[in-house]
Amino acid sequence: MVIDFSVRPPHRSFMDDFYDPPDYLKGYAHLYADRFNEVNHFLHAPIEEFFDHLNSAEVHLAVISGKDNETLHGRKIANDVVSEIVNKYPDRFVGFAGVDPLKGMDAVREIERAVKDLGLVGVAIEPFEYNMYPDDRKMYPIYAKCVELGIPISLHCSINFSTERKMDYGHPQYIDTVAVDFPELKLIAMTPGWPWVNELIGVAWRHPNVYIQTAAMRPKYMNMPNTGWQEIVHYGNTVIQDKMLFASGWPLLPIKRSIDEIKGFPLKQDVQEKWLHKNACSLLTIEL
């Protein structure tokens, strides 16, 4: 049984960044170009075929997220669309809200609406897309609202492949600052930290509410010497075993291949189950 903590459903509104990427995301389109055939296939197939694809990988539930980058780029995956998909397929999807931190209090009010009216259960933001660090004060009202509502927030924490954005926006030190200022906030570091993997391990180790999500980085490299990743398997098997969340980032990575590669890690059996679903169940307060 698996919970995939980051999936874009095969719905055109979620795929615009792949088919018509803004200039600052074209590095991603090049990096993941070999994934387009699978995206095209599922976009033009019945949704049940995608569910069969999830079933073949033993994925029971997938987290999908909205996105709002209207202020800078006029792009949006509406939270209403996320809610519509989740409500239509509640046994397959869980929804996180996307908000634009440059919208100030409108973003805060949108989180309230997304949770209380739309039934979404978290927030997902990639600060580098807004030319912001996670500890930017524009983000702090968003964090306060998440604490108030008792929901987690997922933040990009790794290299980004936009040559128009600073790589440093994804450094774990800024997650650490937020965790110090908001100790009750449930923080998910998404695309786990490379090339600052050890720093992110330290942040997750010392903060009870910081989690690490594996999306978009091929798992086999995490278990390979001299990649800068290998410590995450060691510590993920020991002191941060309760902090690891599996995510493929589909369509960026194939789902089943990613799961099979994690199953090949030298993890204790109970720890492997934590990575693949138990930690996600605990964080989302759900039972499977």
Rank of each mutant, 00 (worst) to 15 (best):
V233S: 00
N223G: 01
Y174K: 04
Y19D: 07
L25F: 14
E164P: 00
V7A: 10
I125C: 00
D16E: 15
V94A: 02
I153T: 06
A107E: 10
I125S: 02
K166S: 11
L187R: 01
M244I: 15
T285K: 11
S56H: 13
R257D: 11
N37E: 15
F128S: 06
P192G: 15
G249N: 06
P225F: 03
L276H: 14
D80V: 14
D168P: 01
G228M: 10
N69K: 08
I188S: 05
T191L: 04
D20N: 14
G95H: 01
R75F: 13
R35Y: 10
L185K: 06
V197K: 00
A215M: 07
N37H: 15
G119M: 00
Q269C: 02
M167R: 13
L155V: 06
S13V: 15
A204D: 06
L283G: 09
M105T: 02
V233H: 10
K116D: 11
D260E: 15
D176F: 09
A189C: 15
E273N: 12
L61I: 09
G202V: 05
V180G: 10
D260W: 05
S158W: 02
E148V: 13
P21T: 07
C146Q: 05
F50L: 04
D135Y: 06
N79V: 06
M224D: 02
R8P: 00
P195Y: 04
L284Q: 02
Q230I: 14
I64G: 06
V63L: 14
L283F: 14
E231L: 12
E84H: 04
H53Q: 01
N79F: 03
I153F: 10
Q241A: 14
H60K: 09
R218G: 05
A124M: 09
P101N: 07
V178A: 06
G249F: 13
V178H: 09
L25P: 07
D17T: 11
E110V: 05
A144S: 11
H60D: 04
I64W: 00
P219Y: 09
S248T: 07
F50W: 12
A107Q: 11
E261M: 03
K145R: 13
H171W: 05
S6A: 12
A280P: 12
L267Y: 12
S13F: 05
P172C: 09
N87L: 08
P219W: 07
V203T: 07
N209W: 02
I240A: 06
A78S: 13
S258F: 13
Y140E: 00
Y89T: 01
V233R: 09
V39W: 13
P208M: 05
D16H: 07
G119L: 05
I125L: 07
T71E: 01
F36H: 05
V108Y: 12
L149N: 11
L102E: 09
S248M: 08
P266K: 06
Y24C: 02
W205A: 08
A247K: 04
A97Y: 01
A204K: 09
F50Y: 15
F18N: 08
M139P: 12
Q230G: 04
Q269I: 02
L120Q: 00
M167N: 13
V2K: 08
K256Y: 13
C157T: 15
